[in-house]
Design a protein around this nucleic acid. Structure first.
Lengths: 191, 191, 191, 191
DNA sequence: TATGAATGAGCATTCATTCAT
DNA sequence: AATGAATGAATGCTCATTCAT
């Protein structure tokens, strides 16, 4: 019997190392060798668990994407406090900053690959749907009526995520909360 | 007599070729050879007019950034119609789409270089100032009171620019106008 | 009690898989992993039954060489019909084509290894001896007198084997027979 | 003005180095680095003059093929002495041995590439045509009547070329001449 | 006996850069 | 001013081999 290893766990370790590097230096500057070294393994180990570099990159994205969603979902109380849940998902520590940076990097990279682009669009659409539901719930209106407000909210959350992951010092939690609350205050009211 | 060449014009030609390529395939995938070929010149010409690749990339960014600002300023009427001016700056043809893509690509690239990061921050801050003035004018309030609304507006404009440059079909001018008008309608009112 | 396995049979299975692959893609492009997969086993199984890649390759050669000889010998009637026996050995189905391709590939590979070269020379010499006997029998002359005719016959048989294994459509059995009969017709007569 | 170099000559130098190595160790074992080193240049120089490895390999083949043909043509007297011309083309020194080895190696390699295979078939067909003409001339018969004899002659010449390039000591010029003359003696006579 | 995880050297290839002309 | 020849380091990837289980 060969040594028994947990494939999924190995892949997760390597994906996480890749996500770290992607956040730090970008996708193209991230090398297979670096990924291996960061994960405490050899280059060969990386290629052993992943078909090629794109495969690692995709795994890193899914890891980061899942992390952001998990933080949001985990923070949803009953009844939901949307501002708090969004703040939990937004960059507020090293890991969440990394996740947003990966997402940002990926959103550009994806535009050059048909399959990655679909992955990206699905993720975006799903997030807009969630936002629409949130706004409809918050404003007590239909999904249709909530559309434009939801697009505005998505824009604001994405903007905070972008900037806070790039320049965390300028975006402490209080500033994030302030803008988010301001946005919710504007939403769902007759203009 | 040496041949007389217009240095600035040569640099502009090459920068524009670089901007095209950066928008299409990203910074790292853009090669010096490709830049030369796209500009109708040799690789040697590129290195002759620019110190190194980073130098070309920076010139391409400044070109794209300037283009966006120029379109906005040129569209400002008296009295200003802010929605129209912003629509003029946002992606609505091949060139403006290219400029927004370059900006997007660059905003990520910049985070890895101290000097580029300063360039980026200056540009961002300047744009937020402009937006604040616009909102203060629109809502008839002070710059201080306009701050949060301006941040919201910036978020919305950036979001439209991002998405419309990546997926133009989903963001025809009417949709851009609709969201922009919705945003202005929410601005400057007591919540 | 350890599991009982038939070593020789396992080696034969793996050698045959290796021969298939060598015929298809050549020696260098054939990987240990592919050999294992083709044999329905793991890479580890291959290294378990063979010292290294050269060992598998040699086994594949001996398999193919033996196959060709076996077909020839089995087709020898009493009295011998040499044309028929040679036709039985030459490429006329998938397996015999494979065997000739392996032989062809090997004849080149062997020139780079002292020990393989001896293997190759022994095989060649044995085949020339057989041919000499055949010609002497056919022409009713001494082995000495048959030498040059035998070399000619060997050349023709090898040429047919080469070409028919590479381009079977151009070398149907009838064409093989025609050339072979022509060759025998020229043999053993006073020039 | 950049340094002026003779492209064709550079390519010829590199192709020749590649042909040497292919003859010695085979195609797959020949590396771009080795080719550069053998030609007295860097790896980068090789890729500068050739698109990729296949490109160098093809150039090496054409070089070897052309060499063999040139030796044959150059040795054709008026009236032609076919045995002498063929002997001039067959392996009789280091360079001609190399050329035959390259051809031999290539004939196998070609079977794995559609485009190389066409190259190979064209070369083979052309050689059979030449042989047919030679036999028709020698025997004073029509091309049609010469076909089988030509195939036999081709087989014999190829066999000598193969074996003499692999094992030169066993195939001194006298032995080559002896078999060749024997073959011609058998050709064009009523059996 | 048999597995497959892990290694790391080696490959073809790409590319920014240098520099002689 | 402008060229493009030349470099060589670096990349993603492949693969025979080793070895703990």
């Amino acid at each position: 019997m060969p040594k028994i290893v947990d494939h999924d766990e190995r892949r997760a370790t390597i994906s996480s190392a890749a996500a770290d590097l992607i956040a730090e230096v970008g996708i193209e500057a991230t090398t297979m060798k670096q990924i291996g070294a960061r994960a405490g393994r050899t280059t060969g180990a990386v290629t052993h668990y992943f078909a090629d570099k794109d495969d690692v990159v995709l795994a890193a994205l899914l890891l980061a994407d899942g992390s952001i969603q998990r933080r949001f979902t985990a923070a949803l109380t009953t009844p939901p406090n949307l501002v708090e849940a969004l703040l939990a998902a937004l960059p507020n520590d090293a890991e969440s900053r990394r996740d947003w940076r990966v997402w940002r990097v990926f959103s550009d990279y994806a535009t050059r690959s048909e399959s990655l682009l679909m992955q990206y669009r699905a993720s975006s659409a799903s997030w807009l749907d969630t936002a629409t539901e949130m706004v409809a719930y918050h404003a007590g209106c239909s999904a249709d009526e909530a559309r434009l407000d939801a697009e505005m909210l998505v824009a604001v959350v994405d903007a905070i995520g972008d900037e806070a992951s790039v320049d965390p010092d300028s975006w402490p939690p209080e500033r994030q909360r302030e803008l988010l609350e301001h946005c919710f205050a504007k939403i769902g009211r007759v203009a």
